[in-house]
Computed example of a mutant assay.
Amino acid sequence: MAHNGIPHFQNERGIPSIQVGDKEFMCIGAKPPLDHPHIFLDMGAENEIVCPYCSTLFKYNPSLKHGAADPADCLYTEIDSTAAA
């Protein structure tokens, strides 16, 4: 999976809302293999958006850097399984 600069966020803990430093991103729900279809979300002029699959409320926080989340563990980064070998 190539992220191409688009951050991916997950909500494995099932918290009601996540603050993010981006208005365009992908929501994957829980971590694989329990993830939902990876959906592109675009807040546009708004500062909040709800994922239609997992109902997580994402809130834009301009003080966060690109690709950052609060809580921080909601940022999903795929681990290269070949690097561990």
Rank of each mutant, 00 (worst) to 15 (best):
A45R: 09
L41Y: 12
S81I: 10
K59F: 06
C51V: 09
G29L: 05
P33M: 01
P71R: 06
L34C: 01
N47I: 12
D35K: 07
I15K: 13
C54E: 08
M43W: 11
P7E: 04
E46Y: 09
P7L: 03
R13A: 14
A83D: 12
A83Y: 05
I39P: 02
P62N: 15
K31S: 12
E24L: 10
G29F: 08
F9L: 04
D70Q: 15
A83R: 02
A2K: 08
Y60L: 11
A72I: 13
A84D: 04
H66F: 15
P33S: 05
Y53S: 03
M26A: 03
A69G: 10
F40S: 06
E12R: 06
L75F: 04
L64I: 05
Q10E: 14
E12V: 00
P52C: 02
D80H: 05
F9G: 04
Q19C: 09
A30S: 12
M26L: 10
L64R: 14
I18Y: 02
G44Q: 14
I79T: 05
C51P: 13
D73E: 12
M43P: 14
A72S: 06
G67A: 08
A69D: 09
D73W: 14
I79H: 04
Y53N: 08
G5I: 01
G29D: 02
F40Q: 13
P62V: 02
S17V: 01
P32E: 04
Y76H: 06
C74R: 13
A30V: 03
D80G: 01
E24S: 13
K65F: 01
E24P: 00
Y60A: 01
D22L: 02
P62W: 01
N61P: 10
I28T: 00
A30R: 13
P32R: 01
N61D: 15
K59N: 13
A30Q: 15
G44V: 13
A68P: 01
D70A: 07
I18Q: 06
M26G: 10
N61W: 07
N47E: 14
N11P: 09
E48R: 15
A85I: 04
A69Q: 12
M43K: 13
I79S: 04
F25I: 00
E46K: 15
T82S: 13
G14W: 11
E48D: 13
L34T: 00
F40P: 01
M26S: 06
N47M: 08
N4K: 09
C51A: 04
A69C: 07
S17W: 08
D35E: 12
K65E: 13
E78Q: 14
F58T: 04
F40W: 04
D35R: 04
G29S: 10
N61S: 08
D73I: 07
L64E: 14
I18G: 03
P32Y: 03
